[in-house]
């Protein structure tokens, strides 16, 4: 009796603070955000006017918002493909192809992850600078006229230009995740495959991919969620959503509306929409990525 009592207290002492903090710092802000989204509120006024679902009706009619949603999905798709392909490729390269200095590459690839996103944004702004940026200087080697493309300043290239640094900054983490997964695969499997005459490509598709699928799945979901919630930082530092809303994402539009144009109710409605869209995306992705689980027995 005393023992079970102790055990209950022990478990409670872990659960209760977690639950408390979760409630205060996650559930409450979300609920409050949903509540504010039903009001017309500047964000600084004493007075809030209840408007029901008016903000959501306005959202549906707002062409900039739909552009932002499209941009968000462009970044999700670009980052998922770019990061997963590159991370898998690099992970296989440093684990399976006995490359010299594999450890060195692990550090190098992880480097962008320990740099603040703000620094990355500023750094890449310099790379893209039309007049003194290294990208245009490099391109100018191959052309007669010096290249002066304002990568971040024209609608056609701006979003692509935000995608590359996002991939560059993201690869390292997922690379390490996949390296760890590949190292967990027993070498005997590969040896057996080799004896049976399976090529490297065959081994990759039939052994490596199935056995690291869980990690790939987690990576894809994680990239999708963090992009929908967090692409704001990169966008805000590099373009502030411009030129003419060409790179606006939901997060940056929320900030613009809430803190620059003083429509906090509307911004909260965008926040609710981000929540809903993230949930739907995660569910759909989980559905799509479901695959017979392959486990080492």
């Amino acid at each position: 009796m005393i023992n079970t009592n102790k055990r209950t207290w022990f478990i409670l002492s872990f659960l209760f603070p977690t639950f408390l903090f979760f409630t205060v710092f996650t559930i409450y802000p979300i609920a409050r955000g949903m509540y504010i989204s039903l009001f017309d509120w500047s964000g600084s006024s004493e007075f809030m006017t209840y408007v029901g679902f008016h903000n959501f009706v306005e959202l549906a009619k707002d062409s900039i918002l739909w552009k932002a949603v499209a941009n968000d999905y462009f970044l999700v798709a670009g980052k998922v493909i770019g990061i997963v392909v590159l991370a898998t490729f690099f992970a296989v390269a440093v684990t399976r192809f006995k490359i010299r200095g594999a450890k060195f590459y692990r550090i190098i690839f992880f480097m962008p992850n320990i740099i603040s996103v703000v620094v990355i944004g500023v750094l890449w702004r310099f790379i893209y600078n039309p007049n003194i940026g290294i990208l245009n200087s490099l391109l100018s080697i191959f052309t007669e006229e010096p290249v002066r493309t304002p990568w971040l300043g024209q609608a056609g290239t701006a979003l692509w230009s935000i995608l590359w640094p996002s991939i560059w900054a993201g690869v390292g983490f997922y690379f390490l995740l996949l390296v760890a997964a590949i190292l967990n695969i027993p070498a005997s499997l590969y040896e057996a495959a080799e004896m049976d005459g399976a090529s490297e490509g065959r081994q990759f598709w039939s052994i490596t991919v199935p056995l690291i699928w869980e990690q790939i799945k987690v990576s894809i979901l994680h990239i999708a969620i963090t992009t929908l919630n967090g692409s704001f930082v990169m966008v805000w530092i590099m373009t502030e959503g411009g030129p003419d809303n060409a790179t606006q994402v939901m997060g940056s539009y929320l900030y613009q509306m809430g803190f620059k144009q003083f429509h906090m109710g509307y911004a909260s409605a965008i926040g609710v929409m981000i929540l809903v869209i993230s949930l739907i995306t995660t569910l759909v992705l989980q559905r799509l990525l479901r695959r017979d689980e392959t486990q080492l027995s």
Partner: peptide, 21 residues
């Protein structure tokens, strides 16, 4: 108008100005 302008924030544009570009 300098073609680069649309991509520039205030420090970028002021830098180009100071560099006589």
């Amino acid at each position: 108008i300098d073609k680069a302008s649309s991509a520039l924030n205030h420090t970028d544009s002021q830098m180009l100005f100071l560099q006589h570009q």
